[in-house]
Write a protein that binds this DNA or RNA. Sequence first.
DNA 1: ACAGTATGAACGGACACTTGA
DNA 2: CTCAAGTGTCCGTTCATACTG
Lengths: 369, 369
Amino acid sequence: MFARPQVSVVKGGLVPVSEGSSPTQADVATLAGVSSQTVSRVANSRTNVDEATRGRVLSAMRQLGYRPNTAARALATGKFRMIGVISFALNAHGNARTLQAISSAAQDSGYSVNVIAVRASTGGAVREAFSALAAQAVDGIVLIEAQILDRPDLDLPHGVPVVIADGDLDQRFPSVDNNQALGARAATEHLLGLGHETVWHLAGPEDSYSARRRADAWRAALTAADAQVPPVSHGDWSAQSGYEAGRSLAARQEVTAVFAANDHMALGLMRALVEVGRVVPRDVSVIGFDDVAESGCFQPPLTTVHQDFEEVGRRCVALLLDEIAGCAAPGAVSTIPMRLVLRSSTAPPRSAAADGACSGPGDVRAGAG
Amino acid sequence: MFARPQVSVVKGGLVPVSEGSSPTQADVATLAGVSSQTVSRVANSRTNVDEATRGRVLSAMRQLGYRPNTAARALATGKFRMIGVISFALNAHGNARTLQAISSAAQDSGYSVNVIAVRASTGGAVREAFSALAAQAVDGIVLIEAQILDRPDLDLPHGVPVVIADGDLDQRFPSVDNNQALGARAATEHLLGLGHETVWHLAGPEDSYSARRRADAWRAALTAADAQVPPVSHGDWSAQSGYEAGRSLAARQEVTAVFAANDHMALGLMRALVEVGRVVPRDVSVIGFDDVAESGCFQPPLTTVHQDFEEVGRRCVALLLDEIAGCAAPGAVSTIPMRLVLRSSTAPPRSAAADGACSGPGDVRAGAG
DNA sequence: ACAGTATGAACGGACACTTGA
DNA sequence: CTCAAGTGTCCGTTCATACTG
């Protein structure tokens, strides 16, 4: 029972303790002349503290630059006030915007955000990310872009609240979704409405739920309109992949309208069309998906489907916080509407005006497959 | 000294404790038949544990799905194994990529990442973000895009290791930088080398260090080549702003070469040029900055300066970890090289072949200012 | 009695010592 | 005397409970 070695002794007077390490509740208490218990009450804005006392404590806190130690608080309460976000490719446009929104919303609710960028989609990496880092110091988890869940071996730890953004297929978790089907249908119907006999589709990767949902809706819209369903090409969301897939599309004279699963692939496709001398939208109409900020400056400005990623992020946080609070709706799906943004990359098919000149299959350059 | 209420009693046998809450060190200890101290030793891979014992503990941990409680560990060690990242606009291309890289690198070193997206650049918001959230549960901080630091009233908390990515001007903190000057100079010299009399500049926002550095290097390159320095226009990095600023540029017949401070503004500029019927690169050469993934699919494919954001992220983490470890180099600046990517948006000026036809100032549409 | 405030035990782990071979 | 394992107390907060005026 000697003098405790660590705690700086401020017995004497009102010397502000300003050593290297941050001040503790006890330091504040000493300075304010109250017990640390009272400081805790003030820090958590409890009721039963005298106004004058509260004021003293508050000013002591300010003077010392006191910040409650989150680790200690977390240990004591079992709550971390932190949400985890797991995502592939944070640099992907939509994911980045969603993350930004999540971060803002979390801050507003006094939560901080722990991001994990999963590099490979190897099941192990995801699970490890999940359990190792997130499950521990986090009150809940948002999973963005969840082809992750595709692999059935990935059992998410139960007990930890989870929300899936844009990717769930089963109903195990609440999820927030852009209304992909609505958007894709609107896009397809827009092109059909312009008079195109059918609409081709440049889809996203096969293991992406978003991509799959867009493709399904496209197919359904075509079928509903009694239009033929052409074979789909797949890209990986990148402009480059859109260009590569676009070359075959561009070579087929019968292609007059293409719905690309995102704006960047649409850009690549348009590049491919330019290269073979087909002009958009005169010869081929192109429609994108996402409405990335710069799509209005594409050449030509791209007609596309606008997604509200900010709203997705906000709702994810709201849902997750509900789950954390205990008022969980197990399979709740929150759906965000999308809208078509009309610009200049779509038009009625040329054939509507003058047909006939269309040369036969001899003109087709790439493989007929 | 009654039975402790919380800790589940596993006295009897080897019943795996699988209640709702996660197992503790003590649970593992009980199951393995050792003291919790030994479990701690195994968890931290200390040497002085018998191999057989270690094995027993390890299997007990596995059986229980034990994960050390990060809060408790942080409280005991004073280390959080977490780095904070503060950034404006996470959705901005470069920032997102840097964050992605930071996240990967941090994971590799066993750190997790706490992101804070600062919404407004109001000094208060930043400081609050900084001290309130980050300074607390974090071992160090990476600041991305630091016009933040511009305001002198923002005193970063001392004691917390900080690294600045792409934005420091003073030498208070170690920083990692793309070699903006090199890239901007290369871009300018490339255009000059093609025979353009001078190069115009579409700069980024005035309060961005990156933008400023690029503009400075452009100016220096011009001066070094005895070329006139035209007035600069400013955008906000967005394609839209590039378009708006680009309209004045496009209207001036004397503009034959423009260096845009990023690819998206270059895209907007090209759009503006198209609208007045000037073709790139025949009438005007355009060069961008960033080399965003899709710039090769622009119309025409954009010549630009490639930035290695991944390397920036990696180095930020490395530097920060050094600082945390104590081997800090106060004003260390780590610079990443950039390289020019030649595509199809630049060419010798048209006047080099045939001039004369250039109509006078009467043709200029927008204000001459 | 009642308002406020002080007290001591967790929370789960790490570490400096101490003890047992 | 060395190496394995155990004991005790602290990290900074919260919370239930006991205590003052």
